[in-house]
Nucleic acid binder design. Structure first.
Lengths: 155, 155
DNA sequence: CGGGATGATTTGGGATACCATGGGGCCTTA
DNA sequence: TAAGGCCCCATGGTATCCCAAATCATCCCG
């Protein structure tokens, strides 16, 4: 398994360190990236994190824009300019910078959420709320699908 | 990591010296350039800086314009003509020239912002404002991309 | 089916190294 | 000789490393 799956909640210690969940560390190790690449999500109050896979996604996105264009500069600023490459200690922990914690509203606990090629870092309460809302959206979508197609519910 | 990522704010001392953030120094060292190449940004009240990678980007840009054209001369003047190659002292500090500081509105602090192959130098308050604007622009850009492609959000 | 027991993982803390910053003084240059 | 640039060393604060304790999960045996 080479992608981030499931979610884990860990606490920050007095020095602000958090353990990256072991399953996620395994994915990162296979990815081959030294450290943890983290940046604020563009539209959620959460952090996106990952390794080379995430980096190359960002690179690809930047390459679609012409050099020296405003769009590209803006994107580089909004992504690379506010990113951090966090060092991982020998126990698999990282320390989030102040600005990252502020952005995500993190204080003493964080929830790591698998997203396939990347992972997200949430303040636990916010993640619960986000999850509830996402489920509601999905239920709504499912209901609409069931109305247009005349198939029976898939449970 | 071979690109400029994240941002750091450092202060100028009484002699006008600023430390280049250590992670950026590491990138410059790998790039192999002696010193720090700096020029005013073409359209922002900030400075662009870097090493050989930035230099070769500029070269490539100039080559796209026909030799002896007014455009090329103008661009060469605006980039190369106002560039400085700053010496880096043994502690990794540089001294910005008066004209560079004036252009960027720098007084006693600067923010170094990673942009991948190059970095930018900002007066901290101006950078905050610029970042807000860049994020807004990117959100808009992302919305457009999501409409054209039917892929899932990249966050 | 319950109770340990074993190994992995997370959490904690002290020591250490690195880095941003400040200042002295020499040496060049005008 | 005065000014400025440059090199070197000193210091405080912070991040990193290494070792130890506690927590948790899994597996095995009774």
């Amino acid at each position: 398994m080479d992608r981030f799956v499931s979610n884990f909640t860990n606490r920050l210690d007095a020095k602000g360190r958090v353990s990256i969940p072991a399953p996620f560390r395994a994915v990162l190790a296979r990815d081959g990236f030294e450290g943890l690449y983290v940046h604020p999500s563009l539209d959620l109050k959460a952090l996106d994190a990952g390794g080379n896979a995430l980096l190359s996604d960002i690179d690809r996105l930047l390459e679609t824009l012409s050099p020296y264009s405003d769009e590209r500069d803006g994107l580089a600023t909004a992504l690379l300019g506010v990113s951090e490459v966090l060092k991982v200690d020998s126990e698999g922990r990282v320390v989030l910078t102040e600005s990252l914690k502020t952005y995500a509203g993190v204080s003493d606990q964080v929830t790591f959420v698998g997203q396939g090629r990347k992972l997200q870092i949430w303040e636990p309460e916010r993640f619960r709320a986000h999850l509830d809302q996402a489920r509601a959206t999905v239920r709504e979508l499912k209901r609409r699908l069931e109305q247009t197609t005349s198939r029976e519910p898939a449970s």
